[in-house]
Nucleic acid binder design. Structure first.
Lengths: 266, 266
DNA sequence: ACGTTTTTTGACGATTCGTCAAGTTGACGT
DNA sequence: ACGTCAACTTGACGAATCGTCAAAAAACGT
């Protein structure tokens, strides 16, 4: 009957950053717990992640775990946040790609796809965290943190768009159109990745086609924006590969290793 | 420990369509159950939907309910299917809109947005059903039916695209590009709607701006496809309104009534 | 009317969730 | 060094939920 069983987690952690050694230890432990939770999901499937299982897999007691996450859903939300933080790091790297601004935005999309591929489990946590069942039962703090991360991501995209406008690559009617364009970019990327993740079993989209599809979709959208150089004037396939080799060589190597020895893809 | 507790539901329902009066009755009952499940979600929230609650809210016993849905997740999958069927009906209507083909495709997107607005609960079921936790525990039959519906939807989009090509509104390099364009359309619509549903609480996107954003995103994408007439040559804002008044007047009326007396919006 | 097949029932065992009173820890003042 | 106390941890516990199954009921065929 209770809507949100416990508003905040019990662990004292004032408002800003970590203060004492102790709170650092608590924060570290939280990361440990998230890693363990992720491992359980990868090993036994998504629905096998249970609070009881997490408790017995870690070296702490139930109460302690519940001091970190006030419900199973809150745990999912925490995993989503972890995922978004990683994504943010990739985005920051992508935003400094050497090239014109449209290529930089493309690098952002590359990073997103990369993240979906290298950390499928975490990526799916983001999808799961959009679900009302999860949102209803997550703590207010974590939901807040989630929207803050959202805004950070948005800021990166917005900034690239603004630079493109300043550089004359892109023309917009009014300043607030930047937000609309950011949203459109976000939507095409989210939509493509989400649908591809969902359908990867049913095989509508082949694994290797997925990257092509994303590049294709993004190119259409940016052409629609009139973002120069248009795809007919520039080889973005080549840009895509350059992004991979210049920015994310290590991550791509990890993927091909995964394919060779598929451990967790049952 | 069991991966998929029960492969098929126990109710005898061969392969094709309904045969006897009896099986018709069973199918009807299933629809009743879905309606009740939906009501529970609307009244008490998403996470309040419980098998026990569904059982006590309907006039049947637990065993009977479990003969229809072999798990809670399977129930979600069934709700998703119901949602997609409704969507399909709207799409069929949309695909006959009086206008050029780009307007027809726009009508499809309109229908999607409309569905997300008129039946938010069911729409969110689709989102939930994409979640691995749900997919892992749904019955094979239902997952199958889901992909079939997916294909039907795809077929409608594909058909419009092909007609557009035939009419000279759209030029494509090779025939299989039609699939890529269909996927792109689907992705932008899914992405936009999903993000807007998720953020509607946090207020990044205002309720009334949502429609504008979708129209905007779709227009960008179609312009990128080079689908004539381009948005600078045609007033699609006007088309959008025409679609509303000529095709979905009844549904729009229902929405404005909802706004006046918001019953189920918690 | 009677045997067979299909469906329904609801009590039951197994899981999972989330709580809380009692116990432990360690930071801090003296 | 020691006592104190707030903060943290523990794990047994009750409640809620899940999904099953043997027995009862209903439907069906002859």
């Amino acid at each position: 009957m209770v809507w949100c069983s416990r508003e905040t987690s019990r662990l004292l952690c004032p408002i800003g950053k970590i203060k004492s050694k102790r709170q650092q230890a608590i924060a570290d432990r939280e990361q440990d717990l998230l890693v363990i939770a992720e491992q359980i999901m990868e090993r036994e499937g998504f629905s096998a992640l249970t609070m009881d299982k997490l408790v017995s897999a870690c070296s702490y007691s139930k109460g302690t775990v519940y001091n970190h996450f006030n419900s199973k859903e809150d745990l999912f939300c925490a995993l989503c946040i972890k995922s978004m933080k990683q994504l943010l790091h990739l985005f920051r790297r992508a935003s400094h790609f050497e090239g014109h601004h449209r290529e930089r935005m493309l690098a952002i999309h590359f990073a997103y796809r990369l993240h979906a591929m290298t950390r499928p489990t975490l990526f799916l946590c983001v999808l799961t965290a959009q679900t009302p069942a999860v949102r209803e039962k997550s703590s207010a703090e974590r939901l807040q943190q989630q929207t803050e991360l959202d805004q950070e991501v948005t800021k990166i995209c917005t900034s690239i768009l603004e630079q493109a406008v300043a550089a004359g690559e892109l023309t917009i009617a009014t300043p607030e159109y930047v937000d609309a364009l950011t949203f459109a970019s976000w939507a095409i990327s989210f939509g493509s990745n989400a649908l591809m993740s969902g359908d990867c079993d049913s095989g509508v989209i082949e694994r290797l086609d997925a990257e092509k599809a994303l590049l294709f979709n993004v190119s259409l959208l940016m052409d629609g924006m009139g973002w120069l150089p248009l795809s007919r004037e520039w080889d973005y396939q080549n840009s895509w590969q350059r992004i991979g080799s210049e920015l994310f060589a290590a991550e791509l190597l990890a993927i091909s290793d995964m394919d060779k020895a598929p451990i967790s893809q049952f």
